[in-house]
């Protein structure tokens, strides 16, 4: 027994030395779960000889807490718009040298100069989408074009909301006619009360499970992200997606390089690689979310290109705006959302 232990230990020690001796270049990537075609990573490793350590997170907040409180160092991270803004404000990101990311020129203008990074210095967009209502046409008889339907008692216990504070608060704020980025305590309270009032009608507050549940026919209406909707609609023909007329949220997940990144040049190579048309198409196929370059979009099949959930019209997009970060308001949103969930 003891002998076996000694052998095992010596093997482990030798192995760890082998690991050290192999000084292959390493890139640490931190992305959302199920948000890439893993073959892309293999291709990058083959083409550049850089080894990729790939890790995933579930929410922006989760990622932020790990990055700011932990002692981890990543070279490329994929936060969303308002989180990018927060990380810029808190001096957690470094400027990206776009000279080393030539493919950035292919990114469509509609994804540039957005309020979270007005001069495009710190982030490069990866995938984007909208928030809207996914509904089952066999269960909903009214026209779905407004957030109001989520407060209609006819659909009591048939409604799924997002278990995500900014998204659910956004729905209530826009229904009330306020900005989704409001920093006014009274407006936030009003939205909070509206969500508490809605709670008896809601079947559940979900994030990842909502897609499967809608495909099964568990609920009639759900607030979802567009990529989930595209995926769900391809699995169940009765489902449809709409961006309500009052407006909605449009979001972008970007690629950024943290201040404490160890391998900036590999990070730039990786970001540039992710913007290549063939890579974008692979990721679009895998995730169902929308890509950022017209030259790649042109290569998608017609059905997909014309899918309004994946690629909304300019008129639809003009009704949407992106989340912005405000430190004081975040405290208010946290508090309001806790009130809603705890009610």
């Amino acid at each position: 027994m003891k002998k076996a232990l000694v052998i095992l230990l010596s093997v482990l020690i030798v192995l760890s030395f082998v690991g050290c001796a192999n000084d292959k270049e390493v890139l640490n990537v931190y992305n959302w779960g199920e948000y890439i075609d893993m073959a892309v990573i293999d291709m990058f490793e083959d083409e550049t000889g850089i080894k990729v350590n790939y890790n995933t997170f579930t929410t922006n907040e989760d990622m932020y807490v790990k990055l700011s409180k932990g002692r981890v160092s990543y070279d490329v991270v994929f936060p969303s718009d308002y989180m990018i803004q927060r990380m810029i404000e808190e001096d957690m990101l470094q400027k990206i040298n776009m000279v080393n990311v030539p493919n950035y020129l292919k990114v469509d203008d509609v994804h540039k100069n957005l309020p979270y990074d007005p001069n495009n210095e710190y982030s490069v967009p990866y995938l984007w989408g909208t928030v809207g209502i996914l509904y089952n046409t066999t269960m909903v008889s009214d026209t779905v074009d407004s957030w109001d339907i989520l407060w209609n008692e006819k659909y009591s216990q048939k409604i799924f909301m997002q278990d995500s504070q900014r998204d659910s608060m956004m729905v209530a704020l826009i229904k009330l006619g306020y900005s989704q980025n409001t920093t006014d305590q009274a407006q936030i309270d009003e939205a909070m009360n509206l969500l508490i009032e809605q709670k008896p009608l809601v079947l559940g507050y979900l994030v990842d499970e909502v897609k499967d549940k809608m495909v099964q026919g568990e609920g009639a209406l759900a607030v979802v992200w567009s990529g989930e909707a595209v995926d769900a609609m391809s699995m169940n023909e009765d489902l449809a997606y709409v961006i309500p007329k009052e407006g909605s949220n449009r979001w972008v997940d970007g690629m950024v390089i943290p201040k404490n990144a160890k391998n900036v040049s590999a990070a730039e190579k990786f970001i540039n690689f992710m913007l290549r048309d063939d890579i974008m198409l692979m990721n679009a196929n895998e995730t169902g979310y929308s890509i950022t370059s017209q030259s790649a979009i042109d290569q998608l099949d017609d059905e997909w290109k014309s899918n309004l959930a994946a690629f909304p019209t300019e008129e639809m997009l003009s009704r949407c705006s992106v989340f912005e970060y405000n430190a004081d308001a975040t405290v208010m949103y946290n508090k309001a959302w806790t009130e809603v969930t705890a009610h």
């Binding site: 809601v202 946290n334 705890a342």
Partner: peptide, 21 residues
Amino acid sequence: SGGKITLIGNIIEQQFTITGD
């Protein structure tokens, strides 16, 4: 509960993973 019923464990988890408080 489909995320509808919040117990004290959920609030604690929320403080660590989401609000960072």
